[in-house]
Design a protein around this nucleic acid. Structure first.
Length: 390
RNA sequence: GCGCCGAUGGUAGAGUGGUCAAAUACGACACGCUGUAAACGUGUUGCCUCCGGGCUACGUAGGUUCGAAUCCUACUCGGCGCACCA
């Protein structure tokens, strides 16, 4: 499989209008200009974003002109994609700008903003915030209500009597206009963005006579269709600490092991196909976790994280590194609540009652809620949290 | 503008004067079994507690009542319908 074939197939969901069309373009040696937009709505970039960012990186490494577009303009409109209800909170341009900075730091774990052929950073607020009434109307002219309302999500809302706010309804127009301004040859995005991206394809042709292709990347989700990496309490952030990252990946469903190999590592596809998931699920998952951590940190951290994982969770040893909390002969309950390790005393009482708090030295469960720990003692709370009193 | 309807815990969604910190489901957490997977079982899931109980919560502000998530008034937000086409 050569680089172009890999670019076109690995970690790719669909290509519009067709894979062949794009392949022909690439084989001709033409350097393309492409972009992917990210609305900085505050959520951290997570492992799901990594699929697209890696694709970004591939394009970059092949010498194409790649733009990382910060959607501070589109973000204000509020992307309705995947939303069952009208968004209640819309972001202000100030909030969006502030979030954008974090995005770049996080994205830089995967893509290069410096060196040879660096990725360009642009902000669509630059042009979207300056649109005049006439320009907006000229854009709107190219869309019909029927086209926009056709989307499943809107149909569902209509059926359910949920509102469709005009503000979010217009979102695709703004995103589409990015393609017009940037005059890109291709847009890259998650498969959930297909509609918005195709709106851009249509608009670029209508307003500029430009043929913009679209490449979508698959969403990382398990067999139940639950998206991986951003469930509320367990966001797998790109900037998470190595041991944490490793652990979170290990707790993912087996269903995503193979997809992770395909989308998030460079292990040759032939090898990925030879994996026996049933037999080696555990070791494969460790391997993929290791490879991902190594990308986001480095090989050494990945090895340490893996060792730490094996020792702690497989051999039952006490982990070498754990959160250190200061206590001045206060009760364990007070220390944990004070340091925000737990959200309330009630929660701690519950955990004690459930036998979830263990003294690591004696390996005995704490049963007295008012227990006062000594300096140097360490404890396990629940399955995953380890703390040491200093 | 007029009319009708709605607003409940992380989510969905019951509850229409006391037995309501609020059914149920999902989610989350813990324990057990395990591979920090899945499936399954059990329990927990507002805050504080001297474990007796106390406090705060059902859009916001008032009111009625011994007692309100439940009734009344005003307000805010939202949905639907009518008004145009006739």
């Amino acid at each position: 499989m050569d680089k172009i074939e890999e670019l076109l197939t690995r970690g790719v969901d669909k290509i519009y209008p067709s894979k062949e069309a794009l392949e022909e373009l690439l084989r001709s040696g033409k350097k393309l200009k492409l972009y992917q937009g990210f609305d900085p709505t505050g959520d951290k970039l997570h492992i799901g974003h990594m699929v697209g960012l890696r694709k970004h990186r591939q394009w970059q490494d092949l010498g194409h002109e790649v733009i990382f577009l910060i959607g501070d303009g589109t973000g204000e409109a509020g992307d309705p994609t995947g939303k069952k209800k009208t968004r209640e909170k819309f972001f202000t341009s100030e909030e969006l700008r502030a979030n954008a900075k974090d995005y770049l730091t996080q994205a830089s774990k995967v893509v290069r903003f410096d060196g040879a052929n660096p990725i360009k950073i642009m902000y669509n607020g630059e042009w979207l915030n300056k649109l005049t009434k006439t320009e907006i109307l000229n854009i709107a002219e190219h869309f019909s209500v029927q086209q926009l309302i056709e989307r499943d999500m809107f149909q569902e809302r209509l059926k359910a009597g949920e509102s469709i706010n005009l503000r979010e309804f217009l979102y695709p127009l703004l995103q589409a206009y990015d393609s017009v301004v940037l005059e890109v040859d291709l847009e890259l995005g998650g498969s959930d963005q297909t509609f918005n991206m195709l709106a851009g394809r249509m608009l670029a042709r209508a307003m500029k006579g430009k043929e913009k292709l679209v490449m979508t990347t698959p969403l990382l989700s398990d067999s139940k269709g639950v998206k991986i990496g951003k469930s509320e309490n367990n966001v797998i952030g790109l900037t998470d600490q190595a041991p944490d990252l490793f652990g979170k990946i290990m707790s993912l469903s087996d269903d995503v092991i193979i997809p992770m190999f395909e989308y998030l590592t460079d292990v040759p596809m032939a090898e990925v196909k030879s994996f026996n998931l049933k037999k080696d699920a555990m070791s494969l998952k460790k391997k993929v976790a290791h490879l991902i951590v190594a990308q986001l940190h480095d090989e050494k951290s990945a090895q340490e994280a893996e060792d730490n994982f094996s020792n702690t969770f497989q051999k039952g040893k006490i982990p070498e590194v754990m959160a250190e909390l200061g206590g001045n002969s206060e009760s364990l309950m007070d220390i944990l609540v004070k340091t925000k390790s737990l959200s309330s005393k009630s929660e701690y009482r519950r955990l004690v009652k459930e036998g979830a708090v263990t003294d690591l030295e004696s390996d005995e469960k704490i049963s007295d809620p008012d227990f006062i720990p000594k300096e140097g003692q360490s404890f396990k709370i629940g399955k995953k949290t380890f703390i040491k009193i200093i």
